[in-house]
Design a binder for these strands. Structure first.
Length: 311
DNA sequence: GAGCCGTGGCG
DNA sequence: TCGCCAAGGCT
């Protein structure tokens, strides 16, 4: 990780004015400088559009799966206007098997909105970003902070876990709460833009590499000496249980995925018979197809059968 | 606010 | 093997 000015490894922390919060931030920033991964979106000159695309792709999808799709995407559509000029069907095909294909549809719609409202330039204002389709609290602040260097708290699942443990002494974060989570991060955020940027990125990186959900590597953690959870003896989580993720195998979601796969591969309308062949249960097929039509991921063709939108 | 939305890798 | 988890957001 050497894309930014790196302070001396053992830079002395200022004694005057140091609070527990600024001490924590300093540890994170220094750790990030030494241990942050060299990811595409951290390269110098990476565009704000590239950051936005990467954040869409990274929603609920691991880094390793995103990188090849991201690079192909940006080669094909280097600007929002380039994507806006292509049919949504092409975005869905390029999205391939990344999952949650509605994200591709929303990203295309956001590209249209950026082209129409912002002259093709990804906005830096959080409220303008929030107004874009598919952009929520996390993504809006991530783009403002990471693409434009603005000082905003960025809170994702990694950040929430690090705060829960290091600050709150809990093994797992409480269920997400927009106001509480942003306030908790704001409390820790360094005053300067550059430090705030590295702190936001560093908290996420620590949560992704060290303070992971299962079997955290506390022996490698820069916060181990000040971690409230470790100090308390790593107590088990007692709060409300997370909703159990439903089984994917045999679910309507799987059937939707299979139909989408057919639609992506086809360059003419997919017939009812072809739809029927992807899954044995007719009622489930019917629900899945109706859902895809309602979501705009599939459209009924005038010639019969179904296609991707604007195919 | 709860439920829903894909897919694959890992322990 | 299989449950858990992954840089969320929308309805």
């Amino acid at each position: 990780m050497s894309t930014r000015t790196i302070p001396p490894h053992n830079a002395e922390r200022p004694d005057a004015g140091e609070t527990p919060e600024t001490g924590l931030a300093t540890e994170i920033v220094n750790w990030f400088h030494e241990n942050g991964r060299a990811l595409p979106w951290r390269e110098p000159g990476f565009s704000a559009w590239g950051t936005l695309v990467s954040e869409f792709m990274l929603q609920q999808t691991p880094v390793a799966r995103v990188i090849p799709h991201l690079e192909a995407w940006l080669e094909r559509w280097p600007t929002p206007a380039d994507l806006a000029a292509s049919p949504p069907a092409e975005a869905l095909r390029a999205w391939s098997s990344l999952g949650y294909p509605r994200r591709a549809l929303w990203l295309h719609e956001a590209a249209v909105q950026i082209t129409e409202r912002h002259g093709g330039v990804v906005p830096s204002d959080v409220d303008a970003l929030l107004a874009l389709k598919g952009v929520g609290d996390y993504t809006a602040r991530a783009v403002a902070a990471f693409a434009y260097g603005l000082r905003h708290p960025v809170v994702d699942t990694n950040t929430r876990r690090v705060i829960a443990r290091a600050v709150q002494g809990q093994a797992e974060p409480a269920p997400p709460s927009r106001g509480r989570d942003l306030a908790a991060m704001e409390e820790l955020l360094p005053a300067g833009e550059s430090a705030a940027h590295d702190f936001n990125a560093g908290m996420m990186e620590l949560g992704a590499l060290v303070c992971v959900a299962r079997n955290p590597r506390c022996g490698q953690c820069p916060l181990s000496a000040r971690c409230a959870w470790l100090a308390a003896g790593s107590p088990a989580y007692l709060g409300p249980l997370k909703a159990v993720q439903k089984k994917y195998e045999g679910s309507d979601r799987q059937v939707r995925g299979l139909i989408m796969k057919e639609l992506r591969a086809a360059h003419k309308p997919v017939t009812d018979a072809e739809i029927d062949s992807v899954w044995p249960d007719a009622a489930q097929r019917s629900r899945a197809l109706a859902g895809l039509l309602a979501d705009g991921l599939a459209v009924a063709s005038a010639e019969g059968g179904y296609t991707l939108p604007h195919a």
